[in-house]
């Protein structure tokens, strides 16, 4: 479980995060949503320890990140998997080498043990025959699946995904969403996804944190988001006619 208390972050005079308090649960897909410029990416980078913050605290299963020693922070980072928006695969390595990378860096496994584990996770993301391809030879969806495989290969306790569906067609986006949700449940990972894809919100948003202007404007789930009358949320989530109709139908069916 990740707990965030009163998190504040500024860049010069510009206050990006103005005191966010929330928590992300183990074994659940937690989504951070909000308009562009609402502070989602900065929030995610603070959670990852890539940005320092002025005040507040972030704790990982009770361990407050800012109070950890450098060694403890390094050990904690080895328990984190991250799927970047652009996949961030190492373009000088093959797909198998990319997935093997965290194992080579952080474990003392033999080459055959590492290869076995790589085979297993590549199978898990349905990429059985892509070992020797270079990232540039893979499609956007394949690259995302490789990024997920690399993120989970070392059995992380925490998985972060920044816009995992951006640039993907709707069908592939659903495959990626379902894959993340299955992996989260299967390995009981605390997963935090930064997204503004409303399909993802409805499909896998077991917990949703809505940010607006650096503040938490709403918190709920894909079940409660249909019923909320918070104008800020409804303006954003139901801005398209399609979602307005979906919401109307849901409310008619479920009261």
């Amino acid at each position: 479980m990740i707990e965030v208390k009163n998190l504040q972050k500024s860049f010069g005079e510009s206050h990006i995060l103005k005191g966010i308090t929330t928590s992300f649960n183990k074994g659940k897909t937690n989504l951070i949503i909000g308009q562009s410029g609402s502070g989602k990416t900065v929030f995610l980078k603070c959670l990852l320890g890539l940005f320092d913050y002025e005040s507040g605290s972030i704790s990982y299963d009770g361990k407050i990140f800012s109070q950890l020693s450098e060694d403890e922070k390094r050990n904690l980072r080895a328990e984190i998997g991250m799927v970047f928006q652009g996949s961030a695969l190492f373009d000088s390595m093959t797909i198998a080498e990319n997935v093997m990378f965290p194992l080579r860096m952080f474990t003392k496994q033999s080459k055959s043990e590492m290869s076995e584990r790589v085979d297993f996770v590549l199978n898990r993301v349905n990429l059985e025959n892509a070992h020797d391809k270079m990232p540039s030879e893979a499609s956007g969806g394949m690259q995302k699946r490789v990024a997920i495989a690399r993120a989970i290969v070392n059995n992380p306790k925490y998985l972060f995904c920044d816009e995992p569906n951006s640039g993907l067609d709707p069908k592939t986006a659903i495959v990626i969403d379902n894959l993340i949700q299955e992996i989260t449940e299967e390995y009981q990972i605390t997963t935090v996804i930064n997204s503004h894809d409303m399909n993802s919100v409805m499909e896998i948003g077991e917990k949703i944190v809505f940010l607006k202007d650096g503040l938490k404007a709403w918190e709920g789930s894909n079940k409660t988001i249909f019923k909320t009358d918070n104008e800020v949320v409804t303006d954003f989530v139901y801005s398209s006619n399609l979602f307005k109709k979906v919401r109307k139908m849901y409310l008619e069916e479920n009261g």
């Binding site: 320890g49 390094r74 970047f84 652009g86 961030a88 190492f90």
Partner: peptide, 10 residues
């Protein structure tokens, strides 16, 4: 973001 990926891994 490959450098960020390295940093996130510690």
């Amino acid at each position: 973001e490959q450098i960020d990926a390295l940093e996130v891994m510690g």
